[in-house]
């Protein structure tokens, strides 16, 4: 056993040898290992993947050992509060972290009051809604009209999460056009993508939340297959999708995707003609009392990483869109985004 382990160490040790490239100056305000906690328990999900990409580049740039820990949102907030002051533990998550608070999910703090917002990093443009291939609903407008006319439309999403916001936008759109009819949109609360797909296969839902990455192949199945689906709405901005490679994903090209985003497929957000959209944005959060020097240090490092231009291709290879903003700008951007969604939620409740 001993010799086996020794051999293993040699083999893996070489794999760990990092090419020390353009590491930053040695007067760093932090040292030791950097721990990034993420708002998901899964090491297979998009949060982990985005975190892993930025972590690899940060590790090289700061010449630090950076690890990504999939602790989940609530445990992540706790770690940030308890261990985040020194900057050695920081958090990475997407819009869920304030949406959870807007929807009143237990354990979600107001991130803008309790934490310091760090830079935005990237977008997962894949947030989408699907229907069975033989569904009578051809467009989002069909759904809005059907609900307006009193038809019950069941939409499968995870409550209080990033998949819930598109549902709320639909409710709001129905309410604006047919006040009172928004009750015809029924939220079918499902957790994992597997459960959502299953709800569609079983006829327990008419529309499900999904993703371009996870569901594209289902849209290519023949119509007589029970599993066949069709995209009906992609919530990302049209201009976000335009930054994708032209060939798109699988056999769904970028031009096809643009048919399901605004302005072609649109969900009105307010009476003055604003359109709803949702780019699932990934960003960092710090402990409230973190030293501003550390914030500046991270901002500088990430600005350099994005200027060097290598990280962009890493994101695009995994179907993500790089979207960097340094902390001050990121905070303004996210506060605006949150206010937008808060308005939708209060409009539904009125």
């Amino acid at each position: 056993m001993k010799s086996l382990k020794a051999g293993l160490y040699i083999a893996l040790g070489t794999a760990f040898a990092l090419s020390a490239s353009t590491a930053m100056a040695s007067d760093a305000p932090i040292s030791g290992n950097l721990r990034i906690v993420i708002g998901s328990n899964s090491t297979g999900g998009d949060t982990y993947q985005n975190a892993a990409i930025i972590a690899a580049h940060l590790g090289e740039k700061l010449d630090m050992n950076v690890r990504v820990d999939a602790v989940g949102a609530v445990a992540g907030f706790r770690a940030l509060k308890q261990q985040g002051k020194t900057g050695a533990t920081i958090m990475f998550n997407h819009d869920q972290s304030y949406l959870g608070n807007l929807y009143g999910v237990k354990g979600y703090d107001d991130i803008f009051a309790e934490y310091k917002i760090g830079p935005t990093i990237s977008i997962n443009p894949g947030n989408a809604y699907l229907v069975p291939k033989d569904s009578p609903y051809k467009t989002v407008d069909d759904i809005i009209e059907a609900a307006g006319k009193g038809e019950r439309v069941r939409v499968s999403v995870e409550r209080g999460s990033a998949s819930n916001i598109g549902f709320s936008a639909l409710e709001n759109a129905v309410k604006m056009k047919y006040p009172g009819a928004e009750k015809n949109l029924a939220l079918i609360n499902t957790g994992s993508q597997s459960d959502k797909n299953q709800a569609l296969f079983d006829g327990q839902a008419d529309v499900i939340h999904g993703s371009i990455q996870g569901n594209e192949q289902f849209t290519r199945l023949p119509a007589d297959d029970q599993k066949a689906m069709r995209f009906i709405w992609i919530t990302a901005k049209g201009e976000t999708i335009e930054q994708m490679p032209e060939e798109g994903l699988g056999e769904t090209t970028r031009d096809m995707m643009l048919q399901w985003t605004d302005p072609v497929t649109s969900v009105p957000q307010s009476a003055d003609g604003d359109l709803f959209n949702f780019d699932k944005m990934f960003y960092f959060m710090y402990n409230k009392d973190i030293d501003p020097k550390i914030v500046a240090y991270f901002d500088e490092a990430m600005t350099e990483i994005f200027e060097e231009g290598k990280i962009q291709s890493d994101f695009k290879r995994s179907f993500f869109i790089p979207s960097f903003r340094a902390s001050p700008e990121a905070e303004k951007f996210l506060v605006n985004k949150k206010d937008d969604y808060a308005e939708i939620l209060s409009a539904i409740q009125k």
Binding site: N33, L34, R35, R67, T86
Partner: peptide, 10 residues
């Protein structure tokens, strides 16, 4: 837990 906090993440 105590000693670990003196040297975060090491």
């Amino acid at each position: 837990d105590y000693v670990g906090r003196l040297f975060p993440n090491m």
